[in-house]
Design a protein around this nucleic acid. Structure first.
Lengths: 203, 203
DNA sequence: CCTCCGAAGCAAATATTTGTGCTTACGATG
DNA sequence: CATCGTAAGCACAAATATTTGCTTCGGAGG
């Protein structure tokens, strides 16, 4: 005994490794200790050999992007509430709840951190960002199908998504109560949407 | 000769070094090539020995924070236009113009990148962020002194600053024309401020 | 049950980043 | 004009991150 303990080397399946590494990324990002994020640290926390991480993802940006994509897809359940306001409210409430957790904020931070500087990649990222907002677009589409007149995507970006992101990034807590309603209210009551009653659709 | 060429070693003054390093940070951040930002690269680009950078700033976060603070202070001229709307519009126009340049976007990115993950530092950063918004607070104060009723800071954050930041971060270009007016219009016309005529102050 | 392929683990080499001791230039002060 | 403190530059050392060659496990297909 004491010689090799070959049995101690437990090898995990690719899926397990992937999940463990993703979790380690989120853990480290949301760790209050605030060490800087790098591949050896991630691998160690995941209990995975660092070479496995290098070989699979290549660099930190790719790993972050993969983590973010996977998690966000996993955590975006689309409820159809029957009205535009209800859908937006559900979205806003889920988002606000998310950024109240350190893990949720970490994910948003990871989105930003994984964005490279290059002009070309920046353009690609802008597209990816739009793609990531497909839940919002679906809400708009459903509303249009119902005869409602949803605000344009850019307005939703400015009035609903932007406040959510900036608070996540800078760690500014949203107001305690009524914040989702406030944002949705502003969005619908102000500009191009006939907020009050949903019936006055154009024909 | 040919032995040492001691004369080739030009030493620059601390001020020059500081400026050169700051410029190198911004250059690298906005470089379309998109290499990753680190101290050796910055030092090389600035034509400065990397030890000078390590000794003066210690780490990348501190350097980024210093660069951002210096540049933002340098580039925030406060015009007093005489009205709340005018002041906000001037601020928004300057900001939008800024994020149309790659250097301006780089600065915003640097703000985010220099933010450490730790919970404690996160709280500090939130404060620093507020401090950095003192130009907005001054605008509010002047408006109050005039008898105008400016929106609360949080609302300005959500409706004016957040859209500006998110577009800078994700590289989403603002609409070609009228964007500053649009944002200010929404901000003043909608919520707690009696937008149309400035006279109906509470007493 | 055997063989083969893909991926994880290990160890060691390489590259890169970070830190240190010392020297030297510049400017301030007397 | 001499001297003294500060900060930049250089060379080298230490720490850390990245890459590579090889071995070994586990599952898929025969």
């Amino acid at each position: 005994m004491t010689q090799k303990q070959a049995s101690a080397r437990v090898r995990r399946s690719p899926e397990e490794v992937r999940a463990a590494v993703h979790q380690a990324v989120v853990d480290l990002l949301s760790d209050p200790a605030g060490e800087d994020l790098n591949i050896p640290a991630i691998a160690q926390r995941a209990g995975v050999n660092h070479t496995s991480v290098y070989r699979r993802w290549g660099n930190l940006d790719a790993l972050l992007a993969d983590t973010v994509t996977t998690r966000l897809e996993r955590d975006s359940p689309l409820n159809d509430t029957g009205t535009l306001r209800g859908d937006l409210l559900a979205w806003a409430e889920a988002s606000v709840a998310s950024i109240r957790t350190s893990e949720g904020r970490a994910l948003v931070r990871a989105v930003v951190l994984s964005m490279p500087n290059s002009a070309q990649a920046q353009a690609e990222r802008a597209q990816q960002f739009q793609r990531r907002m497909h839940s919002i677009e679906q809400i708009r589409r459903r509303a249009t199908a119902r005869g409602e007149n949803p605000p344009p995507l850019e307005q939703i970006l400015d009035q609903l998504i932007a406040p959510f992101y900036i608070r996540a990034i800078f760690g500014i807590d949203p107001p305690d109560s009524g914040y989702p309603e406030l944002l949705v209210d502003r969005l619908l009551g102000d500009g191009s949407a006939p907020g009050a009653s949903s019936a006055s659709a154009a024909d």
